[in-house]
Simulated scan of single mutants.
Amino acid sequence: MGLFKRNPFGHILFVKKWLIRILGALTHRRFRGFNELQIEGSEIIKNLPDNNVLFISNHQTYFADVISMFHVFNASLSDRGDSIKNIGYLWNPKLNIYYVAAKETMKSGLLPKILAYVGSISIERTWRAEGQNVNRQVKMSDISSIGKALDDGWVITFPQGTTTPFKPIRKGTAHIIKKYKPIVVPIVIDGFRRSFDKKGLRVKKKNVYQSFEIKEPLEIDYDNESIDSIVEKIEYAIEQHPSFLKVIPQDELEEKERLNRELRDW
């Protein structure tokens, strides 16, 4: 790799590699130390092609969700199995991983700008801006940027566009799936909202049961399936359909966290 080789968005890969290494080292204990991330399905990652893969996930914090995915994806590609033990997997990270994020979020400070360089596809939200509800047209340049990222590698997106659970799936994700025909891999995360603050930068509680489930790719008829049908599949796949809505009893959460502590100490 040439020292100043760039990706399609103009980011220098050598710089991006070192940012991933440094940020990975700084955040590793958030998922294996303060907490113990329980991973399922990492073998699915190893069998994916190098590009045109779209990961869809529920959303619990601004940044911790994506950071955990960088850890899990790279660990899986390095034959760690369902574990992120030993961060040596970050020495040669996969550099063509991108994630969709709100432009205003990624410009809100130095750290978000650094995280943006790591792989953000920053888009303008059509329904929310600066804390206010808005209604504006999708920018075609944003859609093209997601297509460019899919052509180069893997893209992570949060189809609800918010960390509030059980909000509607944005149809834009279904349109992207119809247009670019990626392999669509669902991910379901849990416990991040309890262990981190809303931004996902501060640990607010330790020994929280965190889970990270990678599911088999969705079966989609790209040419004939309707947008509404794809939206419904996404809702079920990331467990944000109203039928999943339930309150987990406090004693069940406490038992999961007790087991999490035992696993961590084992």
Results as ranks from 00 to 15, higher is better:
1 M>Y: 08
5 K>Y: 12
5 K>W: 13
6 R>W: 13
7 N>A: 03
7 N>D: 15
10 G>W: 01
12 I>A: 03
14 F>M: 11
15 V>N: 02
20 I>T: 08
20 I>R: 04
28 H>M: 00
32 R>A: 08
32 R>Q: 08
34 F>V: 01
40 E>R: 12
46 K>T: 10
47 N>G: 09
48 L>W: 14
50 D>G: 11
52 N>H: 12
54 L>K: 05
54 L>W: 10
56 I>R: 05
59 H>T: 02
59 H>A: 05
64 A>Y: 10
65 D>R: 08
73 F>V: 14
79 D>T: 02
81 G>K: 02
83 S>R: 05
85 K>Q: 02
87 I>Q: 11
88 G>H: 12
92 N>E: 15
93 P>A: 10
94 K>G: 01
97 I>A: 00
97 I>T: 00
101 A>F: 05
102 A>H: 13
103 K>C: 07
105 T>C: 06
107 K>C: 06
109 G>A: 13
110 L>G: 02
110 L>D: 08
113 K>L: 09
122 S>G: 12
122 S>E: 15
125 R>Y: 15
125 R>D: 12
125 R>I: 09
125 R>P: 03
130 E>N: 07
132 Q>C: 02
134 V>G: 01
137 Q>K: 13
138 V>Y: 02
139 K>D: 15
141 S>A: 09
142 D>T: 07
143 I>M: 12
152 D>Y: 13
153 G>Y: 13
156 I>Y: 13
156 I>H: 04
157 T>G: 00
157 T>D: 03
158 F>G: 00
162 T>E: 06
163 T>S: 03
165 P>G: 11
167 K>D: 12
168 P>N: 15
168 P>V: 08
168 P>A: 14
169 I>A: 05
172 G>L: 07
174 A>T: 03
174 A>P: 00
180 Y>E: 11
181 K>Q: 12
184 V>M: 11
186 P>V: 05
186 P>W: 07
187 I>Q: 02
187 I>S: 01
192 F>T: 00
193 R>G: 07
193 R>Y: 08
194 R>G: 04
197 D>Q: 04
200 G>D: 04
202 R>F: 09
203 V>H: 14
204 K>Q: 14
204 K>T: 11
208 V>S: 13
212 F>S: 02
213 E>V: 10
216 E>S: 10
217 P>R: 01
220 I>C: 12
221 D>F: 04
223 D>P: 03
223 D>M: 09
224 N>E: 12
224 N>T: 07
225 E>N: 11
226 S>R: 11
227 I>E: 12
228 D>Y: 04
229 S>M: 11
233 K>D: 06
234 I>R: 11
235 E>A: 14
243 S>N: 11
243 S>H: 10
244 F>E: 04
244 F>M: 01
245 L>M: 10
246 K>R: 15
246 K>L: 03
247 V>T: 14
249 P>R: 12
251 D>E: 13
254 E>N: 07
255 E>R: 04
257 E>L: 08
258 R>S: 09
258 R>Q: 14
259 L>R: 06
259 L>A: 00
260 N>V: 05
263 L>F: 14
264 R>W: 08
265 D>K: 06
266 W>C: 06
